[in-house]
Amino acid sequence: MANYSLLIDYDYCTGCHSCEIACQQEHGYPVGTNGIVVKEYEYEAGGRVRIDYLPFFTPHCDLCKDRRTREPTPACVKHCQSACMEFGLTKELAARMGDRNRLVLYTHNPGR
């Protein structure tokens, strides 16, 4: 079975919340349930305050299994306003991580 993942370039996540609502619309999730949750981080580095955002995946994320029978990408990836999410085969995404900075790979292998 092919293993799929999401690759997040979190240097570019701007905290726009599009992925969260896209997920809720896609799955019809009510308030309180979501496959993806974006968190805000504030810290000081290099003499500057930095504001970062990072999406976190919950067990409600099924990588849009049903959706992908008709659309190429999960709803969050498609609507991400800064286009910082990619969907693909785990192996291929991992290979592409290479020496790039600040990436997160989210895997989802139900039944394991």
């Binding site: 726009c16 599009s18 609502i21 619309q25 498609k78």
Partner: peptide, 12 residues
């Protein structure tokens, strides 16, 4: 180019 904001995605 395919992207949408939360307010559009909550249109329903």
């Amino acid at each position: 180019q395919g992207r949408s904001c939360p307010r559009v995605l909550a249109m329903t």
